[in-house]
Design a protein around this nucleic acid. Structure first.
Length: 568
RNA sequence: UGGGCGAUCGUCUAAUGGUAGGACAGUGCCCUUUGGAGGCACUUGUCCAGGUUCGAAUCCUGGUCGCCCAGCCA
């Protein structure tokens, strides 16, 4: 019964190419006395999602494993998209995942240094101010198959470049009128090397530097130099930046600064899940979801609110592995590791989502018994609690069938089942409403079966959860399903959009659920297993007198599978 | 049709010239006071064609297929 679960610990240290590479560099002291140094470099233009969790686990996890340190560095070079709200949420989410940074850094901290280095490159004849419009620059860049051509401004004198760049910085020119470009090779087969833009003019207020700057460095000019300033030894990023690596190296070599190195790995993709910041922002802005932390969102804040745990997310990320292939991991794997984690830690409770009244005709009117129930059968140290039992209780509508199908072991007329931790009961009759729906089931109980076993040793096929009607508390229950109906949400027909794949039934709200009284004391962040139903947690929307529970995940339901197969 | 990267069970991922293994999913059985959990078993794979080698997922050659790049985004 007890699950020691060696698998999740093995999974955390399984071989992968980045671990091998860093292990080797640490062993050979490739960077001399310098320790392994990494960084996690989010742009504060959105909330972190589970794809970022992979990068975080790699950046922080691998550094830690080899005695290194990790900085959290905000890649805040574009004031038009970045906000303090995101800076705050990102820090919260990284900590929630269980990591702590060595230093909190901002690319914007390096604006003065970056500017000095730009002057240095201009003086070395390696950068120039270009007056071409954005449109013209695109035309001059050439195409994938044709080389570009030099800008007419490419051969300005160093003096003129210096003067113009300083005046750009001084705010003499309007947005978009000029840029600073690296002078590399307009005929390079790698478009990133065709005189990339280093600085653009943006008269925008930055969330940290305010109006101190009106020129902002581009990613390519800022990122590698920021790594270098921080003595980052292993700069890990996703595959789409592989083409930028020659440029990353070029700036570092021209400047002769600390030789940080970039390594690329594959992005995390999960079936039925959208992991694009831009599209997640769209879902929020168009109110397709209730916010960044909507429990259906793949954001870390969404997972947190949904009841997912950082431990499970980390185990999943490790289990999904890292490579250089692009694929999509089954969402079932994530759910598996989450159930595995919750199964070990969640307190059990009884809750009836769709109540059906069960009256025990031969149980004494007005009598209340307290039955002892284990808080977690997986963990004896979790203790027990007392749950009230009485003559009228609620059971799940699904747990009674007037005409039971084959292999249906639950309650039906004449059948005996066990009420968990309480008594054996046998259904005797039903009460129906005008429409013919069963609204009440009458049964008899065996007083000798208290605790759930009969002294004569007879067996029952089924055990059901229940809640005493007089003692039940009410709650709103929010059931979540996949946000998208397609394994690949970005696969939509011509002329459509990923929104067409939104699952209209991703949220179902139940208002009449009946819970055992102990659940009134549930705390935010505390995981529960509602026995036979699923894992749940209290939602922050809970208010005085109004409990709201989120379903984190359902329990695997073998009967549902049997029924589905029979129907199919 | 320029450049870069990649291809191993349905999915994700190991094997670094020497027995193709694990996890998830699936199937069957056992167990069960959660039809949960757990246990056991089974199925399925090296993109293709050549070559090197005693031996190839791994090395070589040629194909095929997929992803990324033409932002003053990151």
């Amino acid at each position: 019964m007890t699950n020691t679960n060696p698998e999740s610990s093995d999974v955390l240290t399984a071989s992968n190419f980045l671990r091998d590479l860093i292990a080797e560099d640490a062993r050979t002291k490739k960077f001399g006395a310098a320790a392994i140094q990494t960084r996690f470099p989010p742009e504060p233009n959105g909330y972190l999602h589970i794809g970022h969790a992979k990068a975080i686990c790699l950046d922080f996890g691998l550094a830690d494993e080899f005695g290194g340190k990790t900085n959290l560095r905000f890649d805040d070079t574009n004031p038009e998209k970045e906000e303090q709200e995101y800076v705050d949420s990102i820090q919260q989410d990284v900590r929630w995942l269980g990591f702590e940074w060595e230093r909190l850094c901002y690319a914007s901290d390096y604006f003065p240094q970056l500017y000095e280095w730009a002057l240095q490159l201009i003086k070395a004849g390696k950068a120039y101010v270009d007056d071409l419009t954005a449109d013209q620059i695109r035309q001059y860049r050439g195409t994938l198959t044709e080389p570009g051509k030099d800008s007419p401004y490419r051969n300005r004198s160093i003096e003129e470049n210096l003067d113009l760049f300083q005046r750009m910085r001084a705010g003499e020119f309007p947005d978009g009128s000029r840029v600073l470009r690296a002078k590399i090779d307009m005929a390079s087969p790698n478009l990133n090397m065709r005189d990339p833009v280093m600085y653009r003019i943006l008269h925008a207020t930055h969330h940290r530097t305010g109006d101190a700057w009106c020129i902002y460095p581009m990613y390519d000019y800022a990122h590698g130099q920021s790594d270098s300033i921080e003595n980052v030894t292993h700069s890990m990023c996703t595959l789409e930046f592989a083409d930028h690596q020659p440029l990353y190296r070029w700036f570092i070599e021209q400047l002769g600064i600390f030789p940080s190195q970039q390594f690329e790995f594959d992005r995390l993709n999960i079936t039925y899940t959208m992991l694009s910041k831009r599209k997640l922002l769209q879902l929020v802005q168009e109110k397709r979801v209730r916010g960044w932390d909507d429990p259906r969102m793949p954001t870390l804040s969404g997972f947190r609110r949904r009841g997912f745990t950082p431990q499970a997310i980390r185990t999943f990320v490790a289990a999904a592995g890292v490579s250089r292939t692009n694929g999509s991991t089954d969402v079932e794997m994530l759910e598996h590791f989450q159930r595995d984690d919750l199964n070990r830690r969640a307190r059990r409770a009884m809750a009836v989502l769709h109540p059906l009244k069960l009256v025990i005709d031969n149980y004494p009117e007005g009598q209340v018994e307290l039955v002892e129930v284990a808080n977690n059968p997986e963990d004896p140290t979790a203790g027990t609690r007392q749950v009230p039992f009485s003559r009228q209780i609620y059971i799940e509508q699904d747990d009674f069938r007037e005409a039971p199908p084959p292999k249906y072991y639950r309650l039906s007329p004449g059948k005996e089942v066990r009420l968990r931790n309480a008594y054996f009961v046998t259904a005797q009759s039903v009460v129906k409403d005008a429409a013919g729906n069963v609204v009440e089931v009458h049964c008899t109980y065996d007083p000798l079966s208290r605790g759930g076993n009969s002294p004569d040793g007879r067996k029952v096929k089924s055990t059901m959860h229940w809640v005493s009607a007089a003692h039940a508390i009410s709650a709103e229950i929010r059931l979540y399903d996949k946000l998208f109906t397609r394994a690949d949400p970005s696969d939509y027909p011509e002329g459509g959009s990923f929104l067409d794949n939104l699952n209209p039934h991703s949220l179902e709200i139940l208002s009449g659920a009946k819970l055992e009284p102990s659940l009134a004391q549930a705390k935010l962040g505390e995981p529960f297993q509602f026995e036979r139903v699923g894992y749940f947690c209290l939602d922050p929307d809970t208010s005085e007198g109004h409990l709201v529970f989120n379903r984190t995940l359902s329990l695997k339901d073998s009967w549902a599978r049997i029924e589905k197969k029979a129907g199919a």
